[in-house]
Design a protein around this nucleic acid. Structure first.
Lengths: 213, 213
DNA sequence: CGTAGTATTGAAACGGATCAATATCTGTGG
DNA sequence: CCACAGATATTGATCCGTTTCAATACTACG
């Protein structure tokens, strides 16, 4: 997933409004009328659904350049909320639809982005198919590593979200996530520096655990 | 998801090759070089991945009008194989890419299709997030019902795939699927007529079970 | 009609959920 | 700057459902 090209940025800038959002800000709610489509310029957000039982399932974490604002029948499908502070680009849906009809190249960028989201979601179904908490966590950490901004310092992965968020994403209880982190550390595969930074100690075992199932 | 319009069919017909495939035919393998993009015209297919452990995870079932042939770095991401006999439309990737650059309206149809696949995959993550086999199965059956061809005869849902396929899709063991079907039947929620057709007996309990988690 | 794949059922063990108690972190106001 | 409160995280003990292993039944196709 390359960053946006200069040209794309220019095209988008003409259509979009840039917006700075503090942490824990709701961008839109599930069921709201579709009015804008968004691109994450910077920061992490989560896209989730509230279930009838009161539980919450995070469908995706959104990283820079990710497209979001998926709708069905004119209504957003998920709620989106910032995790960290974030900058988003907001494009009125009607404006976007019109621009896409006019500009096939721009449209192709959007097609690529949606395809990218599709691949990411398919990968998540693989994660959720696993039965073991430690394996799911390892896959999650690798996903974070892939989405890490530039300076990837030797095996140090920043974990911007809470344990609860991770649990809701991995389909595990908070406790299971906590225990899985402890287990990975105990086995000497990773090391936690505070609860929001991980360092990979044994890359081989880390990756083979992730690819195990 | 509406069927293709007459116009779309005409556009596609100009680009695509129609192909009739017997049951259990591999369309392409994970890792093969991307050469065509496909649309299911008729019949059911499965898109899956072989895991290092030898296990298999079905990422999606494909129903009429579904687009498939997702690739990354020029290689297919999943293996696709027919479940029933099927008719597929096969479009050379290069031809398609060129056509999309020329025809924004056609491109928009593809954008819609990919978006549709994305929604479907997100729904599946919700299914996989559940812990109870019976609930997952109920959601699966409702998904089948939604994708059923025209003549939806009073609560009778044809189940074209094997128990094993269902298990690989739901992230359960074969045995768990078997027991879940038995449980749904025992509770009088559905009734099986042979193992490849279900009749919904108690629509209310059926749907509330599916929406439970 | 037989055989190979497919499905069902039972018994036991494992792993995660849940409940509950305690610990740690974060941000706010005194 | 420190103390406090609320949220977040860790750890322990028990329970429950699914996996696994194993044996048997079904069914579809040649």
């Amino acid at each position: 997933m390359p960053l946006l090209t200069v040209k794309q940025r220019r095209q988008l800038a003409a259509l979009a409004t840039r917006q700075r959002l503090p942490p824990r800000t709701v961008v839109f709610h599930e069921g709201d009328a579709l009015s804008w489509v968004f691109i994450d310029g910077d920061g992490v957000l989560k896209s989730f659904r509230e279930l009838p039982s009161g539980k919450r399932r995070i469908v995706a974490f959104l990283f820079p350049d990710d497209l979001f604002g998926l709708a069905e029948n004119g209504r957003y499908v998920n709620t989106v909320r910032t995790v960290t502070g974030a900058t988003v680009f907001r494009i009125p849906y009607q404006t976007l639809a019109a621009a896409l009809q006019r500009d096939p190249e721009l449209e192709f960028q959007f097609l690529s982005k949606v395809t990218h989201e599709l691949r990411a979601t398919q990968r998540q179904t693989l994660v959720l198919g696993r039965r073991d908490a430690a394996g799911r966590l390892a896959m999650f950490l690798i996903m974070l590593e892939r989405n890490m901004p530039q300076p990837r310092r030797a095996g140090r992965i920043p974990v911007l979200m809470s344990r609860t968020d991770i649990a809701e994403y991995l389909g595990l209880s908070l406790e299971a996530v906590s225990r899985a982190t402890r287990d990975l550390a105990r086995k000497g595969i990773v090391e936690f520096e505070g609860s929001h930074s991980v360092r990979v100690l044994d890359r081989n075992r880390f990756e083979s655990l992730a690819e195990a199932l």
